[in-house]
Design a protein around this nucleic acid. Structure first.
Length: 421
RNA sequence: CGGGGCGGCGUAUGACGGCAGUACGCCUGCUUUGGGAGCAGGUAGACCGAGUUCGACUCUCGGCGCCCCGACCA
């Protein structure tokens, strides 16, 4: 069915691209996303997702959700937390630097969650009490707040952002290991589906784990240094790497290379770091009590969008992979205002919409062809369809993929099949 | 948090210790219509505070904000 939401007329959309790149941004993703009007910066590290950006975000989330639903159920935890929950693990003090903490009107200490291990452990206490309750996993897609000392690089490091965080609970390490491997596969699938090649990278475990794994996308804008063997795929974060170059320590064949990586996801074996202090325990078959073994798995949604922008563009603008593009088709009506042409273009639009294709229809009157073309290149929708006097004369439309030079004339009825192929 | 840069119509910029200009945008009208159209008219701007000065958008100091480098990064 035709859903108003799936397609839009540009003349009425809350959208205005900018002629120039913003002068105070250096990061490619910030330049392109701001100029293309996908996002609007409210303050450093805090952005409005405008309609185009919102749609990309929805696509990204849908892919994440699709893969995560195979690993556990979704729920939603609050962003506002009481101090007591964080005091249980000592992190009210420990995370003062990154956690927004303040007093409510009643004088109570509260904070905005930078992460949710404490909260989920508290919730899990009510669910888990026996080995028969394990393993379990649960995830959410939720807003996190981090008082970053230095937000930077557009969407790559924000103060308020969406994170998918998955938590798993196990009775023993064998169960944890097994589940951990499943998550690895799911993560690779998530990134691959949105056109990103992520290297599974060994990293430090931070506060509460000896080791963790990060998913690194190679990009100039990446703030992490990673040693990578292109032959076998071995990767290790430079912060923990003892070797700096030379033969790969894993396969012994390839050479280790230094690359910049953007960390789009990470997975941690938490062990009992959170379950123990919170009292999240279970009874085994013999009636003995043990702390639950936990792991957490995160993906930064806006950072992913920024990463895609960093890796999918040319000098004219963005080039969205189809899976996350805000629309599949950008339909441009160019040339003089003319009733016949307008009707023809409207019909092309309606037909595509009826066939379930998401179309952004640039029906703006009085906007030059050149400006529409430039906007289409900037916004980066995968397929560009042009309707003009020329094409109308032959009852055809002109189709071109973003990034390719050659356009071809096809009949409107052939469009949907072409785009869906 | 240390260091650096920047702060002017909605956007991007030029000049300047002495009436704040240009381009784009936006509004009116006419023309135009396949790679950011033309003409005419119009609209709209100095981050905040203190100091120096006859006079500060301009110089000095402080604050705030943004960007960049570094540190930090569950």
């Amino acid at each position: 069915m035709v859903k108003e939401r799936s397609s839009m007329r540009q003349s009425t959309l809350f959208l205005k691209t900018q002629r120039e790149f913003p002068k105070d941004e250096a990061a490619v993703n910030a330049k392109l996303l701001i100029r293309g009007n996908f996002i609007h910066k409210l303050m450093a590290g805090v952005y409005t997702m405008l309609p185009l950006g919102f749609r990309v975000r929805e696509k990204v989330i849908a892919i994440i959700r699709d893969e995560m639903d195979m690993l556990g159920a979704e729920m939603l935890m609050p962003a506002l937390h009481p101090r007591a929950t964080w005091d249980a693990t000592g992190r009210w003090e420990g995370m003062q630097k990154v956690m927004y903490q303040f007093k409510d009107h009643g004088g109570r200490d509260v904070g905005l969650g930078p992460t949710h291990e404490e909260v989920i452990a508290e919730v899990a206490k009510q669910i888990i009490s026996s080995y028969q309750d394990l393993p379990k996993a649960i995830y959410q897609i939720q807003t996190k707040f981090r008082d970053e000392e230095r937000p930077k690089s557009g969407l790559l490091r924000g103060r308020e952002f969406t994170m998918k965080d998955l938590y798993s609970f196990h009775a023993d390490t064998a169960s944890l290991e097994q589940y951990y491997e499943r998550v690895k596969d799911a993560y690779h699938a998530v990134f691959k589906r949105m056109g990103l090649m992520a290297h599974l990278t060994e990293a430090s475990g931070g506060d509460f784990s000896k080791y963790s794994h990060e998913f690194m996308v190679e990009a100039d804008a990446g703030e992490d240094k990673v040693l990578l063997c292109r032959l076998c795929g071995f990767a290790r974060n430079a912060e923990i790497a003892e070797e700096k170059k030379g033969k790969c320590t894993k396969c012994g064949e390839g050479m280790l290379e230094n690359i910049n990586g953007i960390e789009v996801g990470n997975i941690f074996k938490l062990g009992t770091r959170f379950s123990e202090p919170v009292g999240l325990v279970f009874k085994d078959k013999d009636g003995e009590t043990h702390p639950v073994i936990m792991a957490s798995y995160g993906i930064g949604v806006e950072r992913l969008i920024g990463t895609i922008a960093e890796t999918h563009h040319d000098d004219k603008g963005l080039m969205w992979p189809e899976a996350v593009a805000p629309f599949m088709v950008h339909l441009l009506r160019v040339g003089a205002e003319d009733d016949g042409l307008t009707k023809f273009a409207d019909k092309v639009y309606d037909d595509l919409v009826k066939k379930g294709i998401e179309v952004l229809y640039d029906d703006r009157p009085g906007v030059s062809a050149g400006e529409k073309f430039a906007d289409a290149d900037l916004i980066g929708i995968p397929w560009r369809v042009v309707v003009s006097e020329r094409t109308h004369a032959s009852e055809k439309v002109e189709v071109k993929r973003r990034g390719e030079n050659d356009a071809k004339l096809v009949t409107p009825s052939a469009l949907a099949a072409l785009v869906n192929a």
